[in-house]
Nucleic acid binder design. Structure first.
Lengths: 341, 341
DNA sequence: CTGAAAGCGCTTACAG
DNA sequence: CTGAAAGCGCTTACAG
């Protein structure tokens, strides 16, 4: 009969050897043919591919990872999934990586460096092919683990002047500056900055805000309302109320993101405040719904899908062993003026 | 010197053998001690654990997967990440699985059965420890692949009466019924159902809506406005306008989800329509911001975090080889009445 | 309760 | 351009 001899631990899986046998080549040649390694005769490649088709062979990623000391996994570490910003980045990363056989592994840090370090420890044990992390703010241990691992790594959302560090993003500080300057051109003189979460990128936007107002001689630290709480529409409303109560005279509010700003806009409406008549309101990121608000929200459109795509492209190059021309890619941003300012 | 003999392909990694040597036991015993397999002397377990600490040993998941024919990966297939609903489910799943050493692998199907089948093919090749999928609507090939793999699988968001099929969710149809009944108690008689995407769960809600209105003798198919487009606030506004233009006399709108309903609410405001005076508006899922709307949105609160947690718990049991008492867990839902109805 | 041997399914490094 | 041997780092199955 055709029954194979009883093996001790057979998984019943079709292996590379089966393919090799069917194609009448050695397993090594089959392996090379499959991985598209050059230097295999065209004819043999075809025979192997036919056999793969015929047998329905699927390579075993575990065996591959063990033998090659490299998996197809690419952990992507983001602070939060509840921010649509990062969801967009992830979608784009996944779309760019998947066709190349890489798997994006999503890790959520909740803006906690300790949690990020823990995730990194776990993921690095899996010998990832590459790594995508958000920003530069992490524990020293995490930094060293990444460096020691030798795993190619691209940083998301920010820029750097450090050589040999790869990143794709835009200048958060410039964006903060530009939005503030816009509010100035609208004739506003008492511009508040309202922020939550207070993560590094939010604080960079704050820096841009300060710089712009200082240049205009209008900076007043009392007009900053910073809350470490997580961002939400509800909080945006609460902060707006607090701001108006404690800082009368404010004629514009720059919210550090659209969640907050949408909540602020709705609260203004609830309070019977005219926007932008009495107070101008702006946000950041151009999230879903910002264009639907009443009035529509002025914001900064950030290139999150493009960041996901470009960072994946850069990582793909690094994983191939290439050196990208530019190590810090600036994808810019776009001031989007609508009715609220 | 202490230099180890030159090995041919050493990765420099600390292995289980190193740990075993340091603990003066055999690698097999070390392996068993680490996995908490019972039947290892307490003292040896302690020696092994000490050695692990001392050497900073981290097991190699690839080697483990290859030898045991089972990885620690748990693919979670959801339709979309841009719906906060699924993000909440994922967060909860991840939180429940990670401490047990399992890795949630996020797969996005974009409501496309072909795409889901493709993802399944890839993920199943990785010998996942378990599998979480959304609903029951998939290709026959996908269904068979799951069954043939023998990988424990739990279905999210819906319920079943089929034995041996595991799921955690709630009755989408009942929820649609309850919301419609609520609108009836508010005295509405021309209740429209407005939906987008038209995925299976949305259509189940539609069924509940129909059933309720038929029982009341008020069902009118013309009051259903169904769009296959993806859901968004913008679309909600557009659909509301179309509805009011083409179906005058409507006095309530049941949007199949909160995205749409929020957009509808803002559009109503833009059009100068009083809510709920002229038209009542309700949504589904109680997403962020629904309680901030003007007026606040009546909706159905769905237990998405609980679904994530419970499904992970059920999967954990299945992966341990246990049989959960109940194969279909109903986590219910909660009608949340606010100002818009 | 513990262990020596074999094997999981690939790829690397060496030869020719 | 092709291949036989060895090895990646674990666990399984068999013994005792």
């Amino acid at each position: 009969m055709n029954k194979p001899e009883t093996k001790r631990r057979s998984s019943g899986r079709i292996t590379l050897s089966d393919v090799a046998k069917a194609a009448e080549v050695s397993p090594i040649t089959a392996s090379r043919a499959l991985r598209g390694e050059r230097g295999v005769a065209q004819e043999l490649v075809q025979r192997v591919k036919d056999a793969v088709q015929r047998l329905g062979y699927v390579p075993d990623p575990a065996a591959r990872a063990l033998a090659s000391q490299r998996s197809v996994q690419v952990p992507v570490l983001v602070p939060l999934l509840s921010n649509a910003l990062f969801v967009d980045v992830l979608e784009a990363v996944h779309r760019a990586l998947f066709p190349h056989g890489y798997q994006a592994l999503i890790g959520v840090t909740h803006y906690d460096p300790q949690e990020e370090e823990q995730l990194l420890r776990t993921y690095l044990a899996h010998r990832p092919a590459g790594l995508l992390v958000t920003g530069f703010d992490r524990t020293e241990a995490a930094r060293q683990m990444i460096a020691a691992s030798g795993v190619p790594c691209v940083h998301l959302m920010e820029l750097t002047s450090a050589p040999g560090v790869y990143c794709v993003g835009f200048s958060q500080q410039d964006a903060g500056y530009v939005m503030t300057a816009h509010l100035l051109t609208r004739g506003r003189r008492h511009i508040a900055f309202v922020a939550a979460q207070l993560d590094p990128r939010t604080m960079q936007r704050a820096e841009g805000y300060r710089q712009c107002l200082k240049e205009a001689g209008l900076y007043d630290p009392k007009l900053e309302l910073l809350s470490p709480q997580p961002s939400s529409m509800r909080l945006g409303g609460e902060l707006l109320e607090e701001l108006l109560r404690t800082r009368p005279g404010v004629d514009a509010v720059f919210f550090c993101n659209d969640d907050l700003a949408q909540g602020g806009l709705l609260a203004a409406q609830r309070l019977g405040l005219s926007v932008p008549g009495q107070v101008a309101i702006s946000g950041f990121n151009d999230l879903a719904g910002s264009d639907q608000m009443l009035p529509p929200l002025t914001t900064v459109r950030t290139p999150r899908s493009a960041i996901g795509e470009a960072s994946a492209g850069m990582l793909l190059a690094l994983m191939r062993g290439e050196t990208p021309e530019r190590n810090s890619v600036d994808l810019g941003f776009e001031l989007t003026v609508r009715g609220s300012t």
